Amino acid sequence: MYCAEYSVPIYRGLMLSENKVPWPQQPDHATQLISLENEIHMLRTRMEQMFIEKQSFTVEDVLEISMLLDIRINEYMHMRYNSKQEN
């Protein structure tokens, strides 16, 4: 299979969209929250699947995902709290 090369137009170091509007370099706060929400949902789904497979919450794989899920939920709650404090 052949894939043609595609170059993204760059203006002053910024990538430009088709309508010549610069794409943001850093995701904004709302985008980060949505990304965390998606990751939390994915991790929870994966943890539930592993629990069904292993029939235990104490299996190492399930515990690892559970701990990572806790970390991501804490990050999400921290970001939400900080955004409310700024407003």
Score class of each variant (00 low, 15 high):
E64P: 03
S7L: 13
L43H: 02
V59G: 10
H78P: 06
R80A: 07
E86F: 04
I73F: 01
E48M: 00
V59A: 13
V62S: 07
V8T: 13
Q85I: 10
Y2A: 09
E86R: 02
L69G: 07
T45R: 04
V8R: 09
P24I: 11
N82W: 05
E64T: 07
G13R: 01
F51G: 07
R12W: 08
V8C: 11
E60R: 03
E60F: 00
Q55T: 02
V62I: 02
Q25H: 09
Q26K: 10
R12N: 15
I65C: 05
L36V: 04
P27R: 00
P9Y: 00
E48G: 02
W23E: 14
D28H: 08
R72G: 00
Y2R: 10
N38L: 05
M1L: 09
L33G: 08
L36H: 02
K20Y: 13
H41L: 07
P9G: 06
A30T: 08
M42A: 14
Y76M: 03
R80V: 13
S7V: 12
R72Y: 09
H78N: 12
S17K: 10
P27S: 04
R12Y: 15
L16K: 07
E60T: 04
E64F: 00
R80W: 05
T45G: 09
S35W: 10
D28V: 05
S83R: 01
